[in-house]
Amino acid sequence: MRRLLQLKEFGVAYEGGGDNSALALEAVDLEIRAGEKLALVGESGSGKTTLALALASLLPSHARRFGTMAWEASEPRPGGDIGFVFQDPGGSLNPVRPVGDTIAEVVRIHRHQDRRTAMRMTLTLLDQVRLPDPERIARAYPHQLSGGQRQRVALAAALAGDPKILVADEPTSALDTVVQAAVIELIQSLTTTAGMTLIFISHDIALVSEFADRIAVFRSGRLVEVGTPDEIIFAPGQAYTRHLIEAHRAVGF
């Protein structure tokens, strides 16, 4: 597989209000390949979300990056070349606009389409994320939709710029298990069909083992290990990875 991005000694620090700046991520060496499904796994505070934000150039202004992040092509533009799905599907949609308008705006900006074409493509996108009756959904406001529907809409908005890379940050943590399974299946099949690179952030190693090509385990801002699901789950090289797997066995199937 072609290389998409190389991280070397990459780190991120958040500058605090005063003299304290917290290191959220440090010394990460990681290669990301074009078209792969890469899962970033770890507990809260492990730095996985920070890395996702850094990849999408969405770090807050008080964050400082160091080390190298070398893209093979030019750095991707957020929204266009790289789509982002957040954990809270309500938070990423404008509450006072019909969801169709939100998606259509992304289409117009990144695909340079006129209003009418953008609306038509929006309906196609809503259909692609398997929402029934796209016309009705497009006119709905976020609060009129269920959590699962909102996350599908957020996914459609993330895909609206026709990105090469999709970053999904715990996109199913706020959903129940049945809806979670459906959304995961959807993300997986959409990215596969379009040949997109998927970067999927989760605290659940079992969840990602079902579809990821590679799993990168993070702990306290450091990359613990990276490998295929078989390698990671069959033969975890690190005690911490074994701990995550044990935790799953205690609360899963």
């Binding site: 298990t177 049945v178 979670q180 399974a181 659940d204 190693i205 079992a206 969840l207 083992s209 079902e210 699901p229 078989d230 789950i233 069959f234 797997i245 799953h248 066995r249 899963g252 199937f253």
Partner: peptide, 24 residues
Amino acid sequence: IIATPQSPTAQALVAAVPRLRLQA
């Protein structure tokens, strides 16, 4: 219920639990 779910609801809930790939 986990081994032999009868209702469609229970069946969907059982199917939706993430499984470690190797066990599946």
